[in-house]
Design a protein around this nucleic acid. Structure first.
Lengths: 190, 190
DNA sequence: TTTTGAAAGTGATCTAGGTCACGCGACCCC
DNA sequence: GGGGTCGCGTGACCTAGATCACTTTCAAAA
């Protein structure tokens, strides 16, 4: 399935677009390839795009004052990723985005998103629902962090995204869960 | 300022509506009053509405298996509150919503929101941005929880919402920060 | 006016998870 | 093919915050 089909199938789940409307929508995206380890957004950058993942796996993460990394999101195919705070508010990036594996993405600029949202009501509907889902998912994660211990959160993560186990090294899983790699290791090697 | 003016001013910040459009939009809201301690949404309820706060202060919270409360949100005037997961996915409530003080709200049903979003492009635009902001705020809170200690988070909270200090008892602040009330107390009484 | 109960402070003790230090195999890549 | 570094395990110790138990304060109910 090519890029266009993947995006079309994805959109069709929440919004109704005619073929012409979809073609027009699609014309605003730019296909891009990145290789393992490559940075897409770095702290301090002016953020102008969001990215729809076609293949591979990205991570968005924050580095705190003590140089510790906390992973906000693993982005798998059909997921969207960016520093949404910087993108929406047109401020400098505080979040980094890079590639865990080689990856193919479609990029869409902030200005173009707003333009097509204005032009096509259905597109605005789609983006409302995309954010609705992101909001609810982030809220669930916050609840999970506050109420569950590391082991439960680890198992919850693997149950929801089993594919991560093979693709993502344990130290990154630890950075997602917000624990040291030692603690994660000791969960199953006591 | 009456309910209608408060909502109108709030919407005007992100969407352009004619007076007739706003009147139509407003006609879908129902004004409701609640008193201190009263529950608006309880775990297990069918959730059909979201609430726009006109006056007073609400809290949305989760009770875990050990009967410990974790507060997701304090809802002050011009904030929106509900169990959005249950509302959007039409499932039973897992989140509770109740009143910290006497409160006046405008309620909007899920069905009506979807209906006016479809009818008025500007309203869909407004709700997209409302969720965008909620998403970014929740993501920031997640980052703060993972990267900062209790004292920093407490001071961050009070700096952002100084009014909470007078309205909300410390045990609820602790439940928002995700620490025991004893630990919060000890921060400033060592 | 008395009673009750929520909010808050505080001491003693416990524990999940952090930190530091070291070892060991695997896979890049000059 | 040998040196580097990355992922991962593991032991020894440390600390933020939890838990439990008791006390004080103060305001609302009766």
């Amino acid at each position: 399935m090519d890029a266009k089909e993947i995006l079309k199938t994805h959109i069709a789940k929440t919004a109704v677009l005619t073929d012409e409307q979809f073609d027009y929508f699609f014309s605003h995206f730019k296909s891009q390839s990145f290789h393992k380890g490559q940075a897409i957004i770095s702290k301090g950058d002016q953020v102008e795009h969001e990215y729809f993942v076609l293949s591979g796996c990205l991570k968005s993460f924050f580095i705190n004052d003590e140089q510790k990394m906390f992973i906000l999101q693993f982005a798998m195919p059909t997921w969207w990723a960016s520093d949404f705070n910087a993108l929406y508010n047109q401020t400098k990036a505080t979040i980094n985005l890079d590639c865990i594996t080689d990856a193919q993405v479609l990029s869409l600029s902030n200005a173009d998103r707003e333009k097509i949202c204005k032009e096509l009501h259905s597109v605005e509907h789609f983006f409302r629902w995309r954010t609705n889902k992101g909001f609810v998912a982030t809220q669930k994660r916050l609840l999970s962090v506050m109420n569950n211990n590391v082991k439960d959160r680890y198992e919850e993560l693997l149950k929801q995204y089993p594919e991560l186990y093979n693709i993502v090294p344990k130290n990154l899983i630890a950075a997602y869960l917000g624990v040291s790699r030692e603690t994660l290791s000791r969960l199953y090697h006591p």
